[in-house]
């Protein structure tokens, strides 16, 4: 992997603040009065069991708020987040009729901007997909497809990147490699990564928030030593892993 300027260098770090988020789903109060702060330019992992409302919280930040959801959302300077967000989901969401390259260029097409092919090809090279740039997604493995989705996300050059369990559909080895690649390429961006995998959060998160209980609350984990991506074999990580499991377990009672 060549060392190049991180894509995040195109903008200043963006800090994000969400106040008083509330979600009612089917008459069930999932959370109320929830506050979330994202530190500019750092990767925050949001960890919690399935169905707790993690993805809904992320969708609120992405401007895709589901019905029954509200909250006050702005960046550090009180601006709205429109045009500042890129979104990567668990499914790669590649359009099957477009080549990988054209998928990476989708955002500019939708906005009616002239597509910057050379930058797209450069990003594809950095995720190791130069050879398949002109193939359709169906020809790609799951890991390659998710790398294409990562390139598409980076192409947007947005200061806030929201990721909803982007690696959970992959096998263990592919997942580790993609986590490393994402951590490297997303340097400089403010990232919120939603996951239900404590190890993934411990490996990648500069800040880790645990979401649990009903209505759900957020609590920050103590900061871990070392810069991500961390070694999963590190004893400090293992200790933190046990602590998280205890915390999640306590929250589910």
């Amino acid at each position: 992997m060549s060392v190049a300027m991180p894509p995040g260098s195109a903008f200043l770090p963006l800090s994000v603040s969400l106040r008083g988020a509330r979600l009612v789903y089917d008459d069930l109060l999932l959370f109320d009065g929830l506050d979330l702060e994202l530190v500019g330019g750092s990767l925050t992992c949001l960890l919690g069991p399935s169905g707790i409302g993690k993805s809904s919280l992320l969708r609120l930040l992405a401007g895709l708020a589901p019905r029954g959801m509200s909250g006050h959302l702005h960046d550090g300077s009180g601006q709205s987040l429109r045009h500042q967000v890129a979104y990567m989901a668990q499914q790669d969401l590649l359009l099957p009729w477009l080549s990988v390259l054209d998928n990476v260029l989708l955002g500019s097409r939708l906005r009616g901007e002239p597509p910057d092919r050379s930058r797209a090809l450069d990003l594809l090279a950095r995720v190791g997909l130069t050879e398949v740039a002109h193939s359709r997604p169906a020809a790609l493995s799951g890991g390659m497809r998710q790398r294409a989705a990562l390139a598409r996300t980076l192409m947007e050059q947005r200061p806030l990147v929201l990721m909803d369990e982007p690696f959970s559909g992959l096998d263990a080895l592919t997942r580790l490699r993609l986590q490393d690649l994402a951590a490297e390429l997303l340097a400089g961006c403010t990232v919120l990564l939603v996951t239900h995998d404590p190890l993934e959060a411990l490996r990648l998160g500069e800040h880790i928030l645990v979401m649990n209980g009903r209505p759900a609350t957020l609590s920050a984990l103590p900061e871990l030593p070392g810069a991500p991506p961390r070694d999963p074999g590190d004893p400090a990580l293992q200790a933190a892993y046990r602590a998280i499991l205890r915390q999640l377990d306590a929250g589910s009672r």
Binding site: A62, Y87, L95, L106, G107, R109, L110, R111
Partner: peptide, 27 residues
């Protein structure tokens, strides 16, 4: 729905014809 979500985040100004042309019609 995932494709439409992606399009809304990429182009929040709601260019409906662009979404129709680039996503909904081919799909």
């Amino acid at each position: 729905g995932g494709w439409l979500d992606l399009a809304r985040v990429m182009a929040p100004e709601g260019r409906r014809w662009a979404v129709l042309w680039h996503i909904a019609i081919p799909a």
